[in-house]
């Protein structure tokens, strides 16, 4: 993703719900041109990385925005996909590494992640509201400690290194440009899928369940199954992001899925906004730019204080994140422009 164009694209995004057009096309053009203008560093460390974390945020946005289930386990699910790739694919840790070909490995890892996600969902949807956040946090933390303690399965503290993206069609997908376009392609696919799903019958049912679970149950819907299926879908997105993440880092260790990372995904999503699927991507760009350049402002040491404070301010001032801020700004500007039009 890019740095500047966002504030301009966001509004177009919003009325895109009514008419497909300008906003999407302009954004697509910028995203396609971006890697040719930007340096390798910007293409991968900012561009691809934001896309990956945007996807993680998207899976959370899908659950939280449409399903009303705030999860802290998205990075855990991504981590499960990542570990699956490291264990069944190739790694340099001399533990496991079955060397499955990518076209078996990727669907398999996504499936495992989606099933794990459905399981987490099944455990957490039995309770409601704020419990979800607690249970998913407990799941995320337990998984982190498990991966760290267990050497037979997860190779403990060091985890797995030397996990490479495959070479397909003669292109090495580890190179900056191909990797960026791979991430972009997958991200767009997920984004459009969420956009479509939110307006499908299933998406509407999910939103209705979020708004009034008892009524939906009374109408004869199997609320639990709907929610578990939503978790399954979120697991697919998080799983894809997890595979990209392990290819991006070339390694996976318990540090990838620690509580800090889990909270990071939540921060990205909340800062971006939970109202529209573009929010998480917006949040990812902001947070990752800050993460990269805050060193110059506050020093690497106190970065967490800065991001924590920004998060607090956003939660206090604008519960809908940057998207919400924009809505507010538009509301301020709108009456004037309306009058001048008439």
């Amino acid at each position: 993703m890019t740095t500047e164009p966002f504030p301009d694209q966001a509004p177009a995004r919003n009325d895109l719900i009514a008419r497909i057009g300008a906003g999407h096309l302009a954004l697509a053009a910028v995203l396609l041109v971006f890697p040719f203008v930007a340096s390798d560093f910007f293409t991968t460390q900012i561009g691809a990385y934001s896309l990956i974390f945007g996807m993680l945020g998207l899976s959370l946005m899908w659950l939280a925005g449409y399903g009303g289930m705030v999860s802290l386990a998205q990075i855990t699910i991504a981590g499960i996909a990542g570990y699956t790739v490291a264990i069944f694919g190739e790694n340099s840790a001399d533990v496991h590494g079955f060397g499955w070909p990518w076209w078996v490995l990727v669907p398999f890892a996504v499936l495992i992640a989606a099933l794990a996600s459905a399981l987490v969902g099944w455990v957490s949807v039995r309770t409601s509201g704020i419990y979800t956040i607690m249970i998913t946090l407990a799941v995320a933390t337990a998984m982190f400690y498990f991966a760290q303690q267990n050497y037979t399965l997860f190779n403990g503290f060091p985890g797995f290194a030397g996990v490479k993206a495959p070479v397909v069609f003669g292109i090495d997908w580890r190179d900056p440009m191909p990797f960026y376009f791979l991430s972009l392609g997958v991200a767009i696919l997920c984004y459009l899928a969420v956009l479509y799903a939110s307006k499908s019958t299933f998406g509407l049912t999910l939103q209705a369940t979020r708004d009034n679970q008892r009524r939906m149950r009374a109408l004869g819907y199997d609320v639990t199954m709907h929610k578990v299926f939503a978790w399954f879908l979120a697991g697919i997105i998080a799983g894809l992001a997890g595979i990209l993440l392990v290819w991006f880092n070339g390694r996976i260790s318990p540090g990838t899925i620690n509580v800090g990372a889990a909270i990071n995904v939540l921060i990205i999503t909340v800062i971006g906004g939970l109202r529209h699927p573009i929010g998480p991507f917006l949040g990812a760009v902001v947070v990752i730019l800050m993460q990269t350049f805050a060193i110059d402002i506050v020093g690497a040491e106190r970065f967490n204080t800065l991001i924590g404070l920004l998060f607090l301010v956003i939660v206090f001032v604008s519960p809908d994140g940057i998207l919400g801020l924009w809505e507010k700004a538009k509301a301020h500007l709108a009456p004037g422009s309306l009058r001048s039009d008439i």
Binding site: V70, G129, I130, I133, I263, L266, I267, V270, E301, R302, F303, N304, T305, I307, G308, L309, F311, L312, V315, F316, P319
Partner: peptide, 21 residues
Amino acid sequence: DLRQTLVTIGISIVAADLMLA
């Protein structure tokens, strides 16, 4: 509820960082 919980997450991040400092 949700915003309260989010705020406590923010506080825990800042607190952990300051205690580390």
